[in-house]
Design a protein around this nucleic acid. Structure first.
Lengths: 141, 141
DNA sequence: CCGTTTTCTTGACTCGTTCAGGAAAACGGG
DNA sequence: CCCGTTTTCCTGAACGAGTCAAGAAAACGG
């Protein structure tokens, strides 16, 4: 993903194009499901002197603009991903915390229909599959 | 839920019956989806001098024993509920954070089948419906 | 009732995240 | 191309949910 494209994404969302934002957006594309800490390290590969605050701030801005998505499974720190708008879900290993993407099998926004919505206006259904990843499954012997 | 029944639940799980545990378990039954803080307050209604640590510890023990379930939606503190083993899901208001239970429409453990499991051994599918509750929907005018 | 084991109390501490104020960078108009 | 305004970034401190540790107290089995 060339830097110019990242900048264009920012502009299209009416966001100022700053070095930290471009670097953060690029890092999220390069490291799917990465934690904030990992992203800070990745960003500092390009910009050694960015503050953690700039990364936190950029992540919040990008999330608010819908360019990235924040996910935060129970017992985990915040993670970010660039796959958005395609209603996919996540498969998380209870043992090592690794995350895999899962396409939604049924249709576009299939899970958006709850049995009883209690009068709520539902706008998203988030599905998390919990289990054990292949690497952790074969760990015992 | 009489105290004796709560104690019986603990014994059935081979847990020692202590005042804090009984009080915590009772509080979770009385306050579905309550945060740890709320539960601490509730427990102190019965036992004014329990430490927060005892409550944290009891909650962890009860959760490990499967007597209660811990839920932790993104951006929220940990919450606990006593409805377990019936594969129900949650409806959460983005505005006020209130949580409602939703029965699973399709069957017993319907969502347990991901489109592609990536080799994971899946043991649970957690579904969270995000939206706006009736009270918050009618807030603007 | 006693001894062992588990649990509770007290208090300090960690870590991810947020808050605050001044300095620096980005953008639009001239 | 430069300048002023606005937004963003940096430094450094603070917050809060949750955890850790060591000794005192309570629960259970004999």
């Amino acid at each position: 993903m060339p830097l110019d494209d990242l900048a264009a994404l920012l502009r299209r969302s009416s966001l100022r194009v700053t070095q930290p934002r471009v670097a953060v957006l690029g890092a999220v594309y390069q490291h799917p499901h990465a934690s904030t800490d990992t992203l800070i390290d990745a960003v500092r590969g390009d910009l050694p002197d960015v503050s953690h605050q700039a990364v936190y701030d950029s992540l919040a801005t990008l999330t608010a603009a819908g360019l990235i998505r924040r996910i935060q499974p129970s017992g985990s720190v915040a993670r970010y991903e660039s796959r958005i708008g395609d209603n996919h879900h996540h498969l998380i290993c209870r043992s090592c915390g690794s995350i895999a993407d899962v396409d939604c099998a049924v249709g576009e926004t299939p899970c958006l229909t709850a049995a009883d919505d209690h009068g709520f206006t539902i706008d998203e259904a988030e599905v998390i599959y919990w289990g054990t990843c292949p690497a952790c499954s074969t760990g015992s012997p």
